[in-house]
Design a protein around this nucleic acid. Structure first.
Lengths: 363, 363
DNA sequence: CTGTTAGCGCATTCAT
DNA sequence: ATGAATGCGCTAACAG
């Protein structure tokens, strides 16, 4: 039937313990013995039993990477970078001591986020990386804090990537947070400097850290320019006139929200989108209204995903070093990089001024 | 320390066996007893030990999804859809009998593909889904066939999604293959019908099924129109004049290859790209040469990724039902959908004629 | 450097 | 419907 470690030991004429030591490579074994064992492994085509190994060692080689939307390159880039750092040693072919970096797609659902963490806890994961913005619901935050504490207790390394640290939680190895607030502020300052005053904002989903931080940056810039804006009171008459509209991080949301903004304020000269994907939808809506970009309406995104530079006109946006952040998170999870002081690092967001923004007409 | 099944049993005043039966739900247990056990589970905040469970049961709840490039929405969409079918029941909160769908990023490397399969084999994965095109190297194909046979022997369900079946391998539950050849043919027929004769082709990486099938479709259409093309003889003088250039599935490759094609054949009136991402780069190159799309040069892509419709002009491409295919692969892996006859299904590819293609000048 | 021993935590017979 | 007993395959002390 299935080949076990004992079979390998018998064939190599050593004890099971020796085989285990050779395979795990974390204990001195004579070169000749090692050769013999490895030969037996190859001859028998032996594959280690992961569950048995994890059970005995009370830890596994699984590293979970949680993402909100795997179809979104924003997450794909971070996850791919992390995975490269974790499992990318281009193994010996025999799959020695590699970690298995696995990506779990929560779809933005808080329940699934917790479910995946439980599943990872059940597997005794070596580390967990949480990417992207978090939901700001107090109940969910409490549940997450508790769950992460439990994971940390069991020896799982927890790293946040592109997500702010949880309040009063010391379960975390490190948090790499993007400077969404600063990026949002600089983007709006750029528009203000160009002369824009009526600026529409297509924000991300409500109660998300990313949404809130980018919006706060926007408002800070507006306020500094003497243009006050307020949180839109949904449903109220005031809310229906607000220049801020919320929606998911989709092209469609950008399209519809922009049509709505243009209806509310035909004198709009600029639209800021929650991210680049949303910005694409915004561009489509602006064009469909017979308006030109940037002559009639400027449009800006966020993230600087690869396609942003290929938009026509090239999209003004805020660059987030997604690959670098993901790679760093991967190294932190592996323990091959020392955590930043205090466990928290803020990653700069750089304004990329391109052709989709220009002075408003008559300026 | 860590809570075990025995602790739960003690608290619920039943035997460990009963707790196990309640948790796995595949055995009759009195309702009252079940309640008592579940209460104890909650009170102790018990989490099943996955490795121990997998060891005893000789199978795990892991389902692996292998992708070539996680940062590419082509894979993200399929993987997300599959994952939704597999782990998306929006659990009870207690994480009952869910499967853990995990995405593994091979980066297109054959070694990593095999390594991940070994890692999954080691974990005694319940199923494995391989997405996207395969490498056509005989050595690698043989290794893959052997590895998949080994996995199937151990009870792992193997499903291919967007990948043609392996020759003489019966290890596979089902293969869902895209009609890349037909799609490629229809796309080129569309250009020929518009009047194009000098058509450049920016193909994908060499020795990939996807690349070859799309190219064969292209050539079939060209040949039917009396325009013969041949496999470019790399390095030879002839190869350097070919209207087919190979490169990776990146924006940059599309950009550089198109510049090269334009240099080789300034009279080119159309460029077909390996996929939409490559097409974006092609568009940038065409524009940089001072040429207009589609008036001077038509450009077409493949896949119909979400951003294709937002390109300016909207990109003519071939639509692949990525989400549907991924979801179906997920169901096949779970055994909740019956495999197609013969285990093989070909998924249609539909031409999406949009604004980036038009008759050549003077037509 | 290598062998011996004793569990890791659970699923599953077999009883009852 | 429930309990008792056995072993899954491996790692980690502990000897030597």
């Amino acid at each position: 039937m299935t080949v076990t470690l004992a079979d390998v030991a018998a064939r190599a004429r050593v004890s099971p313990a020796t085989v285990s030591r050779v395979l795990n490579g974390n204990y001195p074994v004579a070169a000749a013995t090692r050769e013999r064992v490895l030969r037996a492994v190859d001859e028998l085509d032996y594959v280690l039993n992961g569950p048995a190994s994890s059970l005995a060692a009370a830890t596994s080689d699984l590293v979970g990477i949680l993402v909100n939307d795997i179809a979104d390159p924003f997450f794909g880039i971070m996850a791919g970078a992390a995975q490269t750092e974790i499992g990318g040693q281009e193994g010996t072919g025999r799959a020695g001591g590699e970690k298995l970096a696995i990506v779990c797609n929560t779809g933005g659902s808080p329940e699934r986020e917790l479910t995946y963490l439980t599943l990872l806890q059940r597997q005794r994961a070596a580390a967990v990386i949480l990417t992207g913005g978090a939901l700001e619901d107090p109940r969910h935050t409490a549940a997450m804090t508790a769950k992460l504490a439990r994971l940390a207790d069991a020896g799982t390394q927890v790293v946040l990537c592109g997500r702010p640290p949880l309040p009063d939680s010391d379960a975390i190895v490190a948090a790499l947070a993007f400077d969404n607030r600063g990026g949002g502020r600089r983007l709006t300052e750029h528009l203000l400097a160009l002369g824009h005053r009526r600026i529409g904002y297509v924000a991300g989903p409500l109660e998300r850290t990313t949404t809130r931080h980018r919006l706060e940056g926007h408002w800070a810039a507006m306020a500094a320019a003497g243009l006050s804006e307020r949180w839109p009171a949904g449903g109220t008459a005031e809310g229906r006139k607000s220049l801020t509209v919320h929606g998911p991080y989709t092209r469609r949301s950008g399209y519809e929200a922009t049509l709505e903004l243009l209806r509310r304020a035909p004198d709009l000269t600029a639209v800021v989108a929650a991210n680049d994907t949303v910005a694409l939808g915004a561009c489509a809506a602006v064009r469909e209204q017979g308006l030109r970009i940037p002559q009639d309406v400027s449009v800006a995104g966020f993230d600087d995903l690869p396609f942003a530079v290929d938009a026509v006109p090239a999209l003004t946006t805020v660059r987030l070093p997604l690959y670098e952040a993901g790679a760093r998170a991967g190294r932190l999870a592996m323990g091959t990089e020392t955590p930043p002081p205090g466990g928290i690092a803020t990653i700069a967001a750089e304004l990329m001024a391109r052709a989709s923004t220009a002075p408003p007409r008559g300026n």
